[in-house]
Amino acid sequence: MMEQYNFIETSSRNITENGEQLRVVNFRGTDQTSIPNQQLNVDGSFTMPMMDYFMAGVEGRLSEVIRNKVIGRLAPEAE
């Protein structure tokens, strides 16, 4: 299901939490199906280590990181 979504960073900012530098990443996932009036968009945010954020950006895989975070949250937890 999520393979039909295009994930982009809408904004981000630096924070310090427990002495660690983190990046809060706000994102939007847009349904790319061609069914008119049947789209479900996903908006959200998450934190990640600052260096991981910049490496993902340099390597052009920030969209993949966002997708993995969303899928991880939507997947049922193992008991």
Rank of each mutant, 00 (worst) to 15 (best):
N68E: 13
Y5E: 05
E77K: 15
F46C: 04
I15P: 01
M50S: 05
F7C: 02
I71C: 07
S45H: 06
P49F: 04
D31L: 07
P36H: 05
N26R: 07
F27A: 01
E9R: 07
A78L: 13
Q38M: 09
V70W: 01
I35T: 13
P36R: 14
N37F: 06
K69D: 03
V58G: 07
N37W: 11
F54T: 08
Q38Y: 03
E3C: 06
L62W: 00
D31A: 01
V42P: 10
G57L: 05
F46R: 00
G44S: 02
D43L: 11
E59D: 09
Y5F: 06
D52K: 10
Q4H: 13
V42R: 00
M2Q: 04
N18F: 11
P36G: 05
M51Q: 15
R23L: 09
I8D: 10
Y53A: 00
G60C: 03
E20K: 15
I66H: 04
F27P: 01
T16R: 13
P49Q: 04
M55P: 03
V25K: 10
E3V: 04
S12D: 15
E20P: 00
P49H: 06
F54N: 14
N68D: 15
M55G: 06
E64Y: 08
F46T: 07
D43R: 09
F27N: 00
T16D: 04
N6W: 11
D52V: 12
T33K: 06
V58A: 10
R61H: 08
N18D: 05
E20Y: 13
S34Y: 02
I71H: 11
T30N: 01
R28W: 06
N14S: 13
Y5Q: 00
T47I: 02
M50R: 15
I8L: 02
R67F: 11
I35H: 05
Q21F: 14
P76N: 12
I8K: 06
V58F: 07
S63Q: 07
M55T: 12
V42A: 10
R61S: 03
R23C: 14
Q32A: 02
K69N: 14
N6M: 06
T30R: 05
E77L: 03
F27E: 00
Q38G: 05
T16F: 13
I35L: 13
Q38T: 05
S63R: 12
